[in-house]
């Protein structure tokens, strides 16, 4: 069947050919069983869209200073008002969405890859290697995220690439525990023993047998990490250690000289926080729904 419908070559396995319909089926299940999760997914897509097309959607530039329009309340001309320098907050929110999308997705991707590498090798190989790595993870995890972030960012300096790498490493190491425990339960399954007994090499077993079977927690981990990274980046920018101004980060819009003017223009304090909350809430709702749909064993756990 699969060979008839797809002519992409001999290497295509039936499972891959069936994938589009499985994807559609998954989404119809999402909408039927988890309506809130589906709404979350839609909101995430809207923000993704807003970030990608910020250039086209934004009525003004993110750093266009209009001195006559300083601290104008929300109106038809400036939907979310303007800030103390006379910049349109709506436009800055859109460009800020782009920064959040870029940082959120790339740092979460880096974190997930790191978690997979660490989690799969330590979980599958076990022994002394696992013990040493786990002690390192222990030491790492006894320090608060933000404390590590403050010290590391002050060394490497603020900036987008640095923030992505630092957040990626931070969440990657912490997340490896989740993948590791999933791998440990997979390791003892009979299909793994079968693969070992027919002489499968370790990399081959890890890639073809272990990895596909820990995909559900990996997907959930990635989704929730995107939200966590966006929040952490906002907190860093808030402390002045994230992407430096005039970049329109949502966290950065709530800090610095803006704080002195919020009493006169309170709308400056509203839009960035509402957007942050909405995005992170949507991602987490979607992540929660994914967890329930993908993995019945993890149902209800956080």
């Amino acid at each position: 069947m699969a060979e008839i419908t797809t002519d992409t070559g001999v290497g295509v396995r039936p499972a891959l050919a069936r994938k589009p319909s499985a994807f559609l089926e998954f989404f119809s299940r999402l909408f039927r069983e988890k309506p809130l999760g589906a709404i979350g997914a839609v909101v995430c897509l809207i923000f993704l869209f807003a970030g990608i097309f910020a250039d086209l959607l934004a009525p003004y530039g993110f750093n266009l200073i209009m001195p006559i329009n300083r601290m104008k309340p929300p109106s038809l001309q400036f939907w979310f008002g303007t800030d103390n320098l006379g910049r349109d907050i709506f436009s800055r929110i859109l460009y800020g969405a782009r920064l959040s999308v870029i940082i959120g997705l790339s740092a979460a991707l880096l974190a997930t890859v790191l978690s997979i590498l660490l989690g799969i090798t330590t979980g599958y190989l076990g022994g002394r290697f696992d013990m040493i790595v786990q002690r390192f993870v222990d030491a790492w995890m006894s320090f608060p995220d933000i404390v590590i972030l403050i010290v590391v960012v002050s060394v490497v300096g603020p900036g987008m690439p640095q923030v992505i790498v630092v957040l990626g490493c931070l969440y990657g190491i912490a997340g490896s525990r989740i993948i590791r425990s999933a791998v440990i339960s997979v390791r003892e399954q009979s299909y793994i023993h079968a693969a070992q007994s027919i002489g499968g090499t370790t990399p081959r077993i890890l890639w073809y047998h272990v990895l596909p079977n820990v995909m559900p927690p990996v997907i959930v981990l990635f989704t929730t990490r995107v939200g966590a990274v966006i929040l952490a980046e906002a907190a860093l920018s808030f402390l002045g250690l994230g992407v430096p101004p005039p970049a329109p980060t949502w966290g950065g819009m709530l800090t610095g000289s803006a704080r002195n003017y919020m009493y006169l223009a309170p709308w400056m304090a509203l839009a960035p926080g509402i957007c942050l909350t909405l995005v992170v809430f949507s991602i987490n709702m979607f992540g929660d729904a994914l967890r329930d749909l993908l993995d019945p064993r993890m149902r209800g756990h956080r």
């Binding site: 808030f238 926080g273 942050l276």
Partner: peptide, 9 residues
């Protein structure tokens, strides 16, 4: 999801 620093602000 609500950032603590925003509530503080």
């Amino acid at each position: 999801a609500i950032p603590g620093f925003w509530v503080g602000t």
